[in-house]
């Protein structure tokens, strides 16, 4: 991976790919990855977090809760390629969205939802029961308890988990293979129904089936490095936020 460092330059990061991807940069791929991450965030976070809250605070223990938990765990265990399959068949073909950012975002979002739900649930569960009882005893309603007491305490863990799920989403290749990724598209997308290039897919293509594999090898090293850096940045950000937020909560 050290070989990638020599390739990275300002031009590499900001230019369009040229000459059948043997020179130029990977700017569209970076933009595409970020757009996909943003899109899947919009899909997965609201529904995932709310379901998590609902599951841990409102639904009573019993058959329904067990059933839903089993189903979400199942969903989390499905290989990512199967999500790609579903995304292609349903979002791309059935709903006629075509290969587009929105189809890819929904597919990646579905992939992230089980992770988000589990993280939210676990973090809420780890909040001590005494906090809830104290809040109830002071006359707060259930909603007030959840929003003003339980959520702030669980926040550091939730945020960390969310960012980690984003780092997973940004590295996934299989689901975007058939829902969004473009092979060679040296321009930026105009609408959410456009195809984009994405870093993981770009790396896959130029390392296995590019027009000139030997000549684009250095591009592949560079792409791999950029991808790793993005993922690591997410992870470090998560670590830092966890420390920062938990300190803040404790001070309150």
């Amino acid at each position: 991976m050290l070989k990638g460092i020599g390739v990275i330059s300002w031009e590499f990061l900001t230019e369009m790919p040229k000459d059948g991807m043997t020179s130029g940069g990977i700017f569209p791929a970076i933009v595409g990855t970020l757009l996909l991450v943003l899109g899947s965030m919009l899909v997965a976070f609201p529904i995932g977090i709310m379901s998590g809250i609902c599951m841990s605070e409102y639904v009573k223990d019993g058959f329904i809760k067990r059933f839903v938990t089993v189903m979400t765990n199942n969903l989390a265990g499905i290989p990512s390629i199967v999500f790609g399959l579903f995304g292609m068949e349903f979002f791309v073909n059935e709903l006629k969205w075509g290969d587009s950012i929105i189809a890819g975002s929904f597919t990646l979002g579905l992939l992230a939802i089980p992770i988000v739900i589990r993280i939210t649930e676990e973090s809420l569960k780890s909040v001590s029961k005494t906090f809830r009882e104290a809040s109830m005893a002071l006359g707060a309603t259930k909603l007030q308890t959840t929003y003003k007491v339980v959520l702030p305490i669980a926040m550091p863990n939730i945020v960390t988990g969310l960012i980690l799920s984003l780092s997973r989403v940004s590295g996934e290749t299989a689901p975007i293979l058939f829902t969004v990724a473009a092979y060679f598209l040296p321009k930026l997308p105009n609408s959410i129904f456009d195809q984009v290039m994405a870093l993981p897919y770009h790396l896959y293509v130029i390392s296995t089936s590019g027009t000139n594999i030997e000549a684009s090898r250095h591009m592949a090293y560079g792409t791999a490095l950029v991808l790793i850096i993005i993922v690591l940045m997410f992870n470090l950000l998560a670590n830092w936020l966890r420390k920062y937020l938990s300190r803040k909560v404790k001070m309150n």
Binding site: S170, E172, L203, Y204, A224, I228
Partner: peptide
């Protein structure tokens, strides 16, 4: 956390 495609490469 490293993406699988990087491992593949």
């Amino acid at each position: 956390g490293i993406p699988s495609v990087v491992f593949g490469f």
